[in-house]
């Protein structure tokens, strides 16, 4: 499998505090890879440096051999990297389908167009993407009345609009019911298989992680302490100590 994304010695400091301290890893094509770790370990900071929301203090990011370190998010997006956020950032003043249409308008580089009515553009295509995530029934509802799980699925539909080669998902199932989590990640796994896309995601639900991730990385206090298959990571004593816990109080610790 070819390498699609590579991070080398990535660092980020905020007034003296090292949030991410020399992280290196790669994501290969067609891979579903998880980044886990305690709150405040630097997962979101890492993601934000990969997709341009934050400028790294040091280190490099390469996308298929092209250096993208410190480029703005919109350029990285145009190069084929999709992104979803821990707290969804959908447009509240638009309907569900208009959110998708907005992404398509941008994908077709028609932002600076003043003539047509926006909601008439790419409607069929948008409906197709909504169908992928089973939201077509809610296409014309205001985005502000959507249930949280549906918002997460809408975000996924939006992220798929420009046919990304790599998708970064920050806590894609946070705040969803266990069954819905499995369902959503199953959908993501199907898309990965069908479209040959790569996914890097952070997640707190260990059931989701161990059920779907091909590879798992563990971040603690800004540094990677493990990077390997599910079994390797599960058995790693350091990972158990700082993150997974011993499960002494109740068995199956962590299927939060």
């Amino acid at each position: 499998m070819t390498e699609i994304l590579r991070a080398d010695n990535l660092r980020k400091s905020y007034d003296g505090f090292l949030a991410v301290d020399g992280v290196s890893f790669s994501v290969r094509q067609g891979e579903l890879k998880a980044l886990i770790g305690p709150n405040g370990a630097g997962k979101s900071t890492c993601f934000n440096m990969l997709t341009g929301q934050l400028k790294p203090s040091g280190g490099e990011v390469h996308l298929e051999g092209t250096r993208i370190t410190g480029r703005p998010p919109r350029e990285i997006w145009r190069m084929g990297v999709g992104r979803t956020f821990q707290i969804t950032g959908t447009y509240r003043s638009m309907s569900v389908i208009e959110n998708v249409q907005m992404a398509l308008i941008s994908h077709h580089r028609r932002i600076f167009t003043f003539g047509p009515r926006a909601w008439k553009l790419y409607r069929d295509q948008a409906l197709e993407f909504l169908r992928t995530v089973s939201l077509e029934d809610q296409a014309d509802r205001p985005c502000s009345v959507l249930a949280y799980g549906d918002l997460k699925r809408l975000e996924l539909a939006i992220a798929l609009c420009h046919r990304p080669r790599l998708l970064l998902m920050d806590e894609p199932t946070a705040g969803m019911a266990p069954a819905a989590r499995i369902e959503l990640m199953q959908l993501v796994a199907d898309i990965v298989r069908e479209q040959g896309l790569s996914v890097l995601f952070t997640e707190h639900d260990m059931d989701v992680v161990f059920a779907h991730a091909h590879h798992i990385m563990v971040l603690n206090r800004g540094a990677l302490i493990a990077d390997g298959s599910a079994d390797e990571v599960r058995r790693d004593p350091r990972v158990q100590e700082v993150y997974l816990g011993g499960g002494t109080l109740f068995k199956e610790a962590g299927d939060a």
Binding site: M206, L249, G254
Partner: peptide, 15 residues
Amino acid sequence: PSEGIAPVIVEQMAR
């Protein structure tokens, strides 16, 4: 109280 928190901290919280 356990939402979004590392499993090892969840154990502490329970205690």
